[in-house]
Design a binder for these strands. Structure first.
Lengths: 237, 237
DNA sequence: CCGCCCATTCTGGTATTACCAAATTTCAAA
DNA sequence: TTTGAAATTTGGTAATACCAGAATGGGCGG
């Protein structure tokens, strides 16, 4: 057991080892023994999981899963640990992305500064280099979309979006495995960038909407094929 | 010092006691002594703050503030501790609310179930009782808006919105101090509820937009009067 | 056989102590 | 002033102990 991922490993283990009826998990002492760490380490991890509202620690009673439904933070955590998320939640996240980013594209048209444009140019340039090298553009895709959100000059907006982009770190590479998808995505990014340059809010909005519609369709198709084996199986360490 | 808010108190203290240049904070041992708790307690709190990306713990070196810009989680935390937020961030949050909730109202029109309607009825009824008693409707207002988001049947959406509603727990009561504001807000809620019942997406969207426009205007006015003394002053314990 | 009560066990909450190794600081020698 | 080695500080981790309330199990009474 590599200690670095104690938090993620613990989260996954709690789900697999908890009482299905009550949601009660093994005690701190048992967990400490299972992971071969001190109780203090377990308590630190549990404190974080409690702050994320994944578990609830009841004094003198035990540790309980607060819900079978993972929190946003938990989803990001599980994604990092390689724990499959409920496909429904993936789809919901895409829907939320549409709500956020279509509006972000519109706002960015009136608020983007030269700094944003410069950063977007860099990202698009990097994308081309990677595509020419036959590589995926997972990171560049995320950077592009988040930079547009940043261009709204609403820092809260940007932080909220950053949260669920963390979740995609494991999935985006899959999406961009197909070079054709990377090319298509990049071409659409260029169009969106043009609209931003022209500060044409309606056009940017429409292009972003179409762009995300494609993403949504991809996941919808993928999810329908994996509805039964994905999800609930929270892989133990 | 009441132990219950160690996390919030600690967060505030770290900002006030950190080195302005390097962002280095007092050591764990010093913090433990300052708050009269064991090092273990401090470490649990720091683990949470680190997970929130508020601080960074460098082995054998020290604890450092990662940024002067608070994360969304940190904002919620500070709000609970009574630490004033940057007025700009309050305004940004309202803008994000508009993006979220106008769309939520539209989606809810096509997805709301009888359960949602029933819950909304309860909340509206409770609002009236409290208004008649001359009390504020901070909690009911939050419940009403969050229930509409819940009616979109997008759990990720709901969780994201819940995060920043926590921040309002300290401010909404101020907003509803004026009984007239409560009455006006409640009347608008009733209109929105009617639109939801009729499943008229466009109407619901328009009403929600107007409703939030009023909220935005309130904060804008309040902020402009407090721009200089609010913010940066992170009150110590 | 069922239900109630009490003693035992378990559990989280907290504090204390101790070591380690690396980072940091101190300070004297060059 | 510069340099470099020694002393100190710091986070990381483990082990132990005690508390008080919750959970549990068994025996007693009905």
């Amino acid at each position: 057991m590599k200690e670095k991922n104690l938090l993620a490993e613990l989260a996954a283990y709690l789900f697999s080892a908890s009482n299905g009826e009550t949601g009660r998990t093994p005690s701190e002492r048992e967990l400490a023994e299972h992971f071969s760490v001190s109780r203090g380490q377990i308590r630190e991890a549990l404190a974080i999981l409690e702050a994320m509202r994944i578990v609830e620690r009841r004094a003198k009673s035990g540790i309980y899963l607060t819900t079978r439904q993972a929190s946003v933070e938990a989803m990001a955590l599980f994604a990092k640990a390689g724990v499959p998320l409920d496909p429904i939640q993936i789809y919901e996240t895409v829907e939320l992305r549409k709500i956020h980013e279509i509006k972000a594209a519109e706002l960015a048209c009136s608020r983007a500064t030269e700094e944003n444009y410069e950063r977007l140019r860099e990202i698009l340039h990097e994308s081309e280099l990677r595509l020419d090298a036959g590589e995926g553009i997972a990171k560049e895709d995320r950077d592009f979309h988040l930079e547009i959100v940043r261009a709204t000059k609403n820092s809260v907006f940007h932080k909220v979006c950053s949260v669920y982009y963390v979740m995609g770190e494991q999935r985006l590479p899959i999406y961009f495995q197909d070079p054709a998808r990377g090319r298509k995505s990049h071409a659409e990014h260029l169009q969106i960038f043009d609209a931003l340059l022209k500060r044409d809010g309606n056009l940017a909005q429409a292009l972003m909407s179409a762009h995300l519609q494609g993403v949504e369709g991809y996941w919808k198709g993928l999810i329908q094929g994996h509805t039964e084996d994905a999800g609930k199986t929270l892989a133990p360490a």
